[in-house]
Amino acid sequence: MTTTLGTRPATRPPKPAPVRAGRRAKSSYPHWFYLPAAVVYTALFLLPTAAAFFFSLTRWTLFDYEFIGLDNFVQFFREPALVKGLTNTLIYAVVTSGLKVVLGLLLAVLLTSQIIGRGLLRSVVFFPVLVSTIGVGITFTALMHPSEGAINQALAAVGVEGPAWLTDPSWALLSVALVDVWKGVGLATMIYIAGVVSIPREYYEAAEVDGASALERFRHVTLPLARPATVTVIILSLIGGLRSFDLIWAMTGGGPGFTSDVIASVIYKQYQAGFYGLSTAGNVVLFLLVSALAVPLFWFLNRRETEL
């Protein structure tokens, strides 16, 4: 084959470089959707938290402040009511969260079984959650009156002498805790109901085929598979118990004496007395206490769940 002088042989165009699958040009566009949430979170949480930490180191009023370092914290821990308030806070949180876990799980098992009026009963159990905490406190203050309260009158009708629920130092904190459980167990029950109904029915059918009793099905099926709901109820109830203030203040005001004071009520009394920097330091202490207990507990419970 001959070629003509002065002409070049035809050349093929270069092949495009292969594009690797899965590699796409990164765009910042999706990250802009985080911006509204980031602005709200910064404005409502990060900035107030930073301001609280700063003003806890000052002696401040609405118009002026003076930096005094850690003096507020030193004075706060010297408060005679603090040790009692800290002890009461831990007792209150443990009692309320423990009872909400136990009663919430039992009520959830009952309200997911085949009983008459199940929907109505669920509404009745959840109703106290919707009622104002102050309203609940005022109502139960009247019901728990030592002589004229309906509770003691009902006990007297069956020959039982009721205690002075809110005026006896040995009963005051426990009485408020029981009212807190009555009001909050409905939320725990709803969380447990969601956890129980999400368990596949095949597990219960297999347990029935193996001859497991109702108690064994609860122990070996419901209890372990409802663990995520248990973790949620424990964390929420514990945080709520540690931060509790409004119900205690409405029913006892921290009394009689300091017997039902918690950290939040001690902080409020300092604020009422005009010690704004001292009360801010107390809020920081409460924030650190809740974080120091809730965060490791949450990590531990979730770690145990993954190991199981």
Rank of each mutant, 00 (worst) to 15 (best):
Asp71Arg: 01
Met190Asp: 00
Ala150Met: 04
Tyr276Gly: 07
Leu297Glu: 05
Asp71Cys: 05
Ala292Val: 10
Thr167Gly: 11
Met190Trp: 05
Gln114Cys: 12
Ser97Trp: 07
Tyr34Phe: 15
Phe33Cys: 07
Pro48Thr: 05
Trp165Val: 01
Leu121His: 07
Leu103Pro: 07
Val83Arg: 15
Tyr192Asn: 05
Ile91Arg: 14
Leu44Arg: 12
Ser27Thr: 14
Leu223His: 07
Val196Ser: 12
Ile134Gln: 08
Trp171His: 02
Gly6Leu: 15
Val197Ser: 11
Trp60Ser: 00
Val295Cys: 04
Gly255Met: 04
Gly195Thr: 08
Ala43Tyr: 04
Ala264Leu: 13
Ala81Thr: 09
Glu305Lys: 13
Asp180Tyr: 10
Ala156Phe: 01
Leu155Tyr: 06
Ala294Leu: 05
Asp180Pro: 10
Ala52Gly: 11
Gly104Ala: 02
Lys100Arg: 08
Thr58Phe: 00
Ala38Met: 12
Asn283Met: 02
Ala281Asp: 03
Ala281His: 00
Val95Lys: 09
Ser147Phe: 02
Gln75Met: 10
Lys15Arg: 14
Leu155Asn: 02
Thr230Asn: 12
Glu216Val: 00
Phe63Ala: 12
Val209Phe: 09
Val94Pro: 06
Phe55Val: 01
Leu293Asp: 01
Ser132Gly: 09
Ile235Trp: 10
Tyr268Arg: 11
Val109Pro: 09
Asn152Glu: 02
Thr7Asn: 15
Leu44Tyr: 14
Leu278Cys: 12
Ala188Thr: 09
Leu236Met: 00
Ala229Leu: 09
Thr42Ile: 14
Tyr276Phe: 08
Pro14Phe: 04
Glu205Pro: 04
Ala38Asp: 04
Ala154Thr: 03
Ser260Cys: 13
Leu46Thr: 13
Ala21Pro: 14
Ala250Gly: 04
Gly211Met: 09
Gly137Tyr: 01
Phe45Val: 13
Ser279Phe: 07
Ile263Gly: 04
Phe33Asn: 00
Thr230Gly: 11
Val19Phe: 03
Pro14Lys: 03
Lys15Cys: 14
Asp71Glu: 06
Pro16Gly: 13
Phe55Tyr: 01
Ile239Arg: 02
Ala177Gln: 14
Asn88Cys: 06
Thr259Ser: 05
Thr139Lys: 02
Pro146Thr: 08
Ser260Pro: 08
Arg217Ala: 00
Ser291Asp: 01
Pro163Lys: 00
Thr112Ser: 12
Ile239Phe: 03
Thr167Leu: 08
Ile134Leu: 03
Glu216Phe: 01
Trp60Cys: 10
Leu103Trp: 06
Gly253Tyr: 10
Ser237Leu: 07
Phe275Gly: 06
Ile235Phe: 09
Val102Arg: 05
Met1Trp: 10
Met190Gly: 02
Thr139Gln: 09
Ala43Lys: 00
Ala264Arg: 11
Glu202Pro: 11
Phe54Arg: 15
